[in-house]
Amino acid sequence: MTYGLLMNLLDMVVMIGIYSIAAISLNLEYGFTGLSNFGKVAFFMVGAYTYAILAQAGVNFGVCMVASAVSAAAFGFLVSLPALRLREDYLAIVTLTSGEILRTIIQNQGIGGGYNGISITQIFHFQTLMAIRLANIGLAFAFLGICFIFSQLVANSPYGRIMRAIREDQTAAQSYGKNIQRYKSQVFIMGSAIAGIGGALFAQYSAHIEPGSFLPFLTFTIWMMVMLGGPGNNLGVILGAAVVQIFQKSAAILKDYVHLPVDPINVQYILFGILIILVLFYRPSGLLKESPVKPPKLKEPVNV
């Protein structure tokens, strides 16, 4: 039992790493730029399927990862073309629907095995499950580190200030001569690429993916991580991802080990819903508030 719990714990840590990447990608779009992408799962799915199909064809890991990021970015670009000119509510509906349509296409056209999904050989072949999980933790957190640093750099650069300006007041940003359409599209592409990386890692770790793994609830989970942790704060959304994952895994473990009159998984979903409404009411800025922009220090004035 203790061994089983330990394995569950390690599994949870891997998933925290993977979901944190997805949360960082949504944070770029929503937290910093104010874009309501309600189809995050679609970009995650594009990354996962690209990885799975290429890995099955025997392509090497690095190429698979790059291809996943690129294909997700390309899909992001495609969706951004009609979507980004729209108001937040329309953007939400369009992105949400894009995800559902993409899932329908994958299911019905037999892409990656259609309904049955596709199996992927993992890249780590160690003797024990523990070693495999530990290696996966290393891998997920290495990529998380890269995405985190990238996102921090973008957010704290002059570019990041434009992103915030678009979030706060589009008209004002436009009146300063910024082509907000182009900026939004670029942010969308960056966010999608990061989501694609997350999806690829998810596919690699899960060893089997199917259309049913990418339901709209996953999008909602990622939103929950961002809303709870603190939109506009990259450390915050990682914290949010950790809290949400701990919740989810505890419910799953509870279901396995304890007999309750209610299904803990259902209760968990209900509690998530209540939690997010409470966050909207009492702490709309999340657990960690948005960090102020850190401009580079000014040079010391030269004394003549």
Binding site: Y30, G34, S36, F38, R87, E88, D89, A92, F220, W223, M227, F272, G273, I274, I276, I277, L280, P284
Partner: peptide
């Protein structure tokens, strides 16, 4: 608007 949409999804 986004908060209201998220809230309605949660509900």
């Amino acid at each position: 608007l986004i908060h209201l949409m998220i809230g309605s999804m949660a509900l």
